[in-house]
């Protein structure tokens, strides 16, 4: 095992989209117990620097593996279909219409209840798309098709962040 192994190899997980979140967390903690700089506090500067590299790498892998969207994007990359999101901004028409409808609904929504209702709808659409991505990656091994859907999911994720900011304000948490 090496620092430059991919995230799945590092964590000893099968290279697929379907994962058990609890399993990822358990392996993350087991790995950190081995490489965390605290374990080498009395070993000198060189050992600490090396431990730091490993600990940073393990944390980076965990961040990516535990988030279904980041994980899917990573898998696409590993399988030769990198997202290149900044270059591929063209989205299917249906998708764009759906996005516009949501944004209009958000503009018109007044109370917390209506905003939450929109979030629920977006969330279930997101879940459906994720399921589709998982099938494309794990069952059909079609990374290109998956990458397209992952780009769509990134749009949706950004929209949900905006919804979050709206909901924050109702909770007195707006900036």
């Amino acid at each position: 095992m090496r620092l430059d192994d991919d995230d799945f190899s590092l964590f000893g997980l099968p290279q697929r989209q379907a994962q058990d979140r609890a399993e990822i967390d358990a392996r993350w903690k087991a790995l950190q117990a081995l490489v965390h700089p605290d374990k080498f506090a009395a070993e000198g500067a060189a050992a600490q620097r090396l431990a730091m590299q490993w600990a940073v790498r393990v944390n980076e892998a965990q961040q990516r593996l535990r988030d279904p969207l980041l994980r899917a994007a990573y898998l696409c990359e590993l399988r030769g279909a990198p997202l290149q999101a900044s270059e591929n901004t063209r989205m299917p028409v249906n998708f764009l219409i759906e996005q516009m409808a949501w944004r209009e609904a958000m503009d018109e929504a007044e109370g917390e209840g209506s905003v939450q209702a929109i979030d629920d709808e977006v969330a279930s659409r997101e879940a459906a798309l994720l399921a589709e991505v998982q099938a494309l990656l794990d069952d059909h091994n079609d990374a290109d098709a998956a990458a397209e859907q992952v780009r769509a999911l990134m749009f949706i994720a950004r929209f949900r962040q905006d919804i979050d900011k709206r909901l924050d304000k109702f909770d007195g948490l707006g900036q």
């Binding site: 095992m1 087991a30 490489v35 060189a46 490993w54």
Partner: peptide, 27 residues
């Protein structure tokens, strides 16, 4: 300390590799 720095790094590396290899065998 300076003279044993790289030795220390190699020891640590070996320790981690051993433990990680044990991890993957288990799976």
């Amino acid at each position: 300390a300076a003279g044993t720095e790289s030795f220390a790094a190699e020891r640590m590396n070996r320790g981690i590799q051993r433990a990680l290899t044990g991890l993957s065998v288990d799976q």
